[in-house]
């Protein structure tokens, strides 16, 4: 005599419906906060060195940029700042487009323009930082950083 009957579980245990959209928005939310903290340091340092030290904006010219970017320290600083600020800013503007552009077509067009601007700016900026020549041959010496004549 069998006392054990094979009764199927009355209903399947609760399973959360698997989301099909991934966790992109969560990561982007975390990224906005994490990149923000790093950007405070990068941007404030940038503004202090370029606008407060010495003669500030008045002193910015080719020689000033040449002097800064002959140092790997400032190349890396500016590269990191470029990438983080562009990803942070682009992601922020993406949120704003999603908030206000109600028609699919409008949203698509605006976001395509946004990603195009992102790509052009990041590629151009990265190339400039790394292919920059602080002492271009044939340029008048008085326009160049002091390291070029030393």
């Amino acid at each position: 005599m069998t006392t054990q009957t094979d009764i199927p579980t009355p209903r399947s245990p609760y399973v959360r419906r698997k989301t099909t959209r991934g966790n992109f928005e969560l990561y982007s939310w975390v990224f906005m906060r994490a990149s923000g903290v790093v950007l405070v340091v990068l941007v404030f340092g940038h503004l202090f060195v370029n606008l407060m030290v010495g003669d500030g904006v008045k002193a910015i010219d080719f020689a000033f940029v040449g002097g800064k970017w002959s140092s790997p320290f400032w190349q890396i600083w500016d590269l990191l700042m470029l990438w983080l600020a562009m990803i942070h800013g682009t992601n922020g503007v993406r949120t704003i487009i999603n908030d206000y552009a109600q028609r699919d077509l409008t949203r698509g067009v605006l976001k395509s323009l946004l990603y195009l601007a992102f790509t052009i700016t990041v590629v151009l900026g990265t190339l400039v930082i790394f292919t920059f020549e602080p002492c271009p041959p044939g340029a008048p010496a008085e326009l160049l950083a002091s390291i070029c004549t030393a």
């Binding site: 040449g66 470029l82 326009l143």
Partner: peptide, 12 residues
């Protein structure tokens, strides 16, 4: 970024 990129064109 665009105006700074001009350092790649020429000092002038």
């Amino acid at each position: 970024v665009l105006d700074t990129s001009l350092v790649r064109v020429s000092p002038e």
